[in-house]
């Protein structure tokens, strides 16, 4: 606790500039449902990339390469916005 800042050192409006703090917080641990992506079915329309609130859709050179499970909270928005005919993402229950 010793390295916590005093109120006088905090930025106005509670903004966070240190993105490391954001990256260190692996919110994927909160997940109860996990997205399972099928590379074969995926047409790389990247609609899931647009909608993902956690920037967990990994893309390289315009193509989806996977889902970053360190930060994916399992909200299922990617599966919901994936075109019906494509159906490249399934939500499955997380098991220990």
């Amino acid at each position: 606790m010793a390295d916590l800042k005093s109120w006088k050192e905090l930025p106005c409006g509670a903004i966070i500039e240190d993105m490391k703090a954001v990256l260190d917080n692996k919110t994927g641990a909160w997940r109860s449902m996990r997205p399972v992506w099928s590379e074969e079915k995926c047409i790389n329309c990247l609609v899931c990339w647009v909608y993902c609130p956690e920037a967990s859709i990994k893309v390289e050179d315009g193509k989806m390469t996977g889902i970053d499970l360190d930060y994916c909270k399992g909200c299922g928005i990617c599966a919901a916005v994936c075109p019906k005919k494509v159906h490249a993402i399934d939500m499955v229950k997380e098991e220990k």
Binding site: G13, A14, I15, I16, E17, M19, V22
Partner: peptide
């Protein structure tokens, strides 16, 4: 200057 707005504290 990327920032996070409205964090959980």
């Amino acid at each position: 200057r990327p920032i996070l707005v409205g964090p959980a504290t």
